[in-house]
């Protein structure tokens, strides 16, 4: 079992948080994991992407030329990475922000208006967690309950209000029928 996941969007969309959450959950379950950010001038231009590899075997290259899971939060990311998804792979698109559909027939594409759902439910800034919920639904890569309890366990007591919001966000994403 190996998941090659690329998450891409603008800085500030919680891409680092979402990708680190996947990486930490994998580590928590004693899987091998690598997390590689884009960095350099690209970072300063506002684009942000992370490559996360989760595997039950030792991980070779941490680079992902052909993701089998691609999550995009903006149009430039869609345009840049959609064609690179491995055949049979999964594409998850925040359709509130990306008004475009994949024309490929060899991949599974999922469209979830995560940013819109976040706004409707007063969960500003949690589109990333909504998408994580949807990712769990589509892949079953982690058990829902253990993923949730591990995620909220990392929220400090001072920010307890966030526990409820994150729990709701994850559920909305999981329950959404795309």
């Amino acid at each position: 079992m190996t998941h090659n996941i690329v998450i891409s969007g603008f800085g500030g969309q919680g891409i680092l948080f979402a990708s680190k959450q996947l990486a930490k959950s994998a580590m928590h379950e004693d899987l091998h994991v690598s997390w590689l950010p884009s960095y350099g001038p690209e970072m300063r231009g506002g684009a942000c992407n992370c490559s996360v590899i989760i595997s039950d075997e030792e991980i070779g290259s941490p680079l992902i030329p052909h993701p089998d899971i691609l999550i995009v939060f903006n149009l430039p990311s869609f345009d840049k990475f959609e064609s690179q998804v491995a055949p049979g792979g999964l594409l998850i698109v925040d359709s509130t922000l990306v008004n475009k559909k994949s024309e490929r027939s060899d991949i599974n594409a999922s469209y979830i208006p995560a940013t819109g759902l976040a706004a409707e439910n007063k969960l500003d800034g949690l589109a990333n967690v909504i998408v994580l919920g949807h990712l769990l639904k589509k892949t079953g890569m982690f058990d829902y309950d253990s993923f949730l309890s591990f995620m909220v366990s990392s929220i400090p007591p001072a920010k307890a209000a966030l526990i409820e919001k994150n729990t709701l966000a994850l559920k909305i994403g999981y329950d959404y029928e795309s």
């Binding site: 580590m27 690598s34 590689l36 960095y39 941490p62």
Partner: peptide, 10 residues
């Protein structure tokens, strides 16, 4: 190298 410096692993 820059990649090893920036990447996260357990």
């Amino acid at each position: 190298d820059g990649a090893l410096g920036q990447m996260m692993e357990p």
